[in-house]
Simulated assay, not measured.
Amino acid sequence: MTVAVYIIVMAGVTYLIRMLPFTFFRKKIKSRFFRSFLYYIPYAVLSAMTIPAIFYTTHNIYTAVAGTAVAIILAFLEMPLIVVALAATGSAFLIGLFL
């Protein structure tokens, strides 16, 4: 019974988050500042959730820095996401083996 309530509440919250912008913003947003602000929100949220996880999951700053550095370099070189993820994970693993 409680699982069903959790699912219903979660569905309602998810629906409200997706429905509210359509309710309040019926016309195209013309403000250049507000449009650029909304454009960068997903990147900021993703970074805020990912960066702490990178440095706290390995429990070793050296492996975290090595994996992050490899990921940044490969992303800057416009490698595919799977290559970036595997190389960053592999480099963190290798550094962890030698420490």
Rank of each mutant, 00 (worst) to 15 (best):
M1T: 15
T2H: 11
T2P: 14
V3A: 13
A4N: 14
V5F: 09
V5N: 13
V5R: 10
I7A: 13
I7R: 11
I8F: 11
V9F: 12
A11D: 04
G12Y: 05
G12P: 01
V13K: 05
V13Q: 12
T14V: 14
Y15K: 06
L16M: 13
I17W: 02
R18I: 12
M19Q: 11
M19C: 10
M19W: 07
P21S: 12
P21M: 10
T23M: 13
F24S: 01
F25Y: 13
F25C: 06
F25S: 11
F25L: 13
R26I: 11
K27Q: 13
K27P: 03
K27L: 07
K27G: 05
K28P: 14
I29R: 06
K30A: 12
S31L: 03
S31I: 03
R32Q: 15
R32V: 05
R32M: 09
R32S: 10
R32I: 13
F33N: 11
F34H: 06
F34T: 03
R35S: 08
R35T: 14
R35C: 09
S36I: 09
S36P: 06
S36N: 14
S36D: 13
F37T: 07
F37L: 13
L38W: 08
L38M: 15
L38T: 07
Y39I: 07
Y40N: 10
I41M: 01
I41Y: 03
I41D: 02
P42I: 01
P42H: 07
P42C: 07
Y43R: 05
A44M: 02
A44F: 03
L46Y: 05
S47R: 02
A48D: 08
M49Q: 08
M49I: 12
T50Q: 01
T50C: 03
T50A: 05
I51Q: 00
P52C: 03
P52A: 02
A53V: 09
Y56G: 07
T57V: 15
T57W: 13
T58L: 11
H59N: 14
H59M: 11
H59V: 06
I61Y: 08
I61S: 05
I61V: 15
I61G: 07
I61N: 04
Y62K: 08
Y62G: 08
Y62R: 09
T63D: 02
A64F: 01
V65Y: 02
V65C: 00
A66H: 02
A66W: 00
G67D: 01
G67L: 06
T68A: 15
A69Y: 03
V70W: 00
V70N: 04
A71P: 00
I72K: 04
I73N: 04
I73Q: 04
L74S: 03
L74N: 02
L74E: 04
A75S: 11
F76H: 11
F76V: 14
F76T: 05
L77S: 12
E78A: 10
E78D: 15
M79T: 04
P80L: 04
P80K: 08
I82N: 05
V83H: 01
V84I: 05
A85T: 14
L86C: 04
L86P: 02
A87V: 11
A87K: 06
T89W: 10
S91E: 06
S91H: 00
S91T: 08
A92F: 01
F93I: 12
F93S: 14
F93K: 11
L94E: 04
I95Y: 00
I95M: 08
I95D: 03
L97V: 09
F98P: 00
F98W: 09
L99M: 12
